[in-house]
Design a protein around this nucleic acid. Structure first.
Lengths: 184, 184
DNA sequence: TTGGCCATGTAATATGTTACATGATTCC
DNA sequence: GGAATCATGTAACATATTACATGGCCAA
């Protein structure tokens, strides 16, 4: 998924300003782009030039004016096409595994400290994700199926973090216990 | 982890040519850069200029000459520093979840087909990974702990794919059975 | 004779990230 | 007075991906 299709998806739910989109994307685990992603503004201009979205300026008192973007019929067609295209494979970038891969020169204590930090970080991510999952107002629910799909999406992320946690805990124990030494 | 540290890691195992590194990285699940990643050559030149690696030209008969790179003492220090830096958080980019997120306009049959394709693709990835995991000659084993760590790295990826498979199978069943309709 | 493997590299393009600029308002 | 929020955008930089160029060897 590229940013443009993701924006189209969000706008297929409801109209948003660039600022809204930026906030939603930066707070989300699903939409994996970094925070302060100002490319959003560029993408919106491109989408608008291609006629996939249009916007309306809303003047507010006391606050800066904003451009509220909506998806067009053409945009919906384009989105549909990208939804039906072959499913994307997950792209798992676990930098920590690369760190471990070359950890041979480190002492057991150093490796354990890394694992402990990693465990704490993942536990934290999981907590934040679950707090997010408890706010149903931040996701679409236009049909029972959509509601179900979003539950499954949240469950997917939860289970990914949980299996990561189990993995790191087991690894920690086995290193702390030195049990790898007997393993042949 | 960036490409440069990953290359340093590989060279801390044994000397390789750029072509070797490219092949290893493209075939690996751990080192997540894309295939035909020719930036490797640029990175090697940078690393060499910084004195972290050096190379030796090996002339071969019938085959083009190659530059075999080795890590320097300075390179090992730099690698050690990056290994001890705070663990990187996983970066999970599951484009398929974004596809599902906006699948409301699709029919149940269309969603099911996507899920089936995804299941087949993940099953395939898992198989390829396990075939890879069965080749112990393609990973370092300089100490019992290193051997253990690489087993755990492989196990991490396996379990990630397996939990993804379980997830998609459950989702498929619940959609096929229409059970989401009763869920409140 | 076509395609794949070996081997290194350049160039172009696409994408992602960070920093900067502006300016009013509100909360501490 | 300083920081955070709202709001849009540009510029610079970093990284990633794809295509292209070269050229000999080997196997189907």
């Amino acid at each position: 998924m590229d940013l443009r299709s993701t924006i189209l998806g969000l706008l297929s739910w409801q109209p948003f300003s660039g600022y809204d989109l930026k906030r939603i994307i930066s707070q989300s685990d699903i939409f994996y782009w970094s925070g302060n992603n100002n490319q959003i503004y560029k993408s919106l201009i491109e989408l608008q030039k291609s006629g996939l979205v249009n916007y309306e300026v809303q003047v507010q008192e006391g606050l800066p004016a904003k451009k509220v973007y909506s998806i067009t019929e053409k945009g919906r067609q384009e989105l549909r096409r990208s939804l039906l295209s072959t499913p994307e494979l997950p792209d798992l970038r676990k930098g920590f595994l690369i760190q471990l891969a070359w950890a041979d020169p480190l002492t057991d204590a150093e490796v354990l400290e890394l694992l402990e930090q990693y465990e704490a970080d993942i536990a934290n991510l999981l907590q934040m994700h679950q707090a997010q999952a408890r706010k149903p107002e931040e996701r679409p629910e236009r049909s029972p199926r959509e509601r179900y799909l979003w539950e499954r999406i949240m469950a997917n992320i939860t289970s990914t973090y949980q299996s990561e946690l189990e993995w790191v805990r087991q690894t920690k124990q086995e290193i702390a216990g030195g049990s790898y030494r007997q393993k042949e």
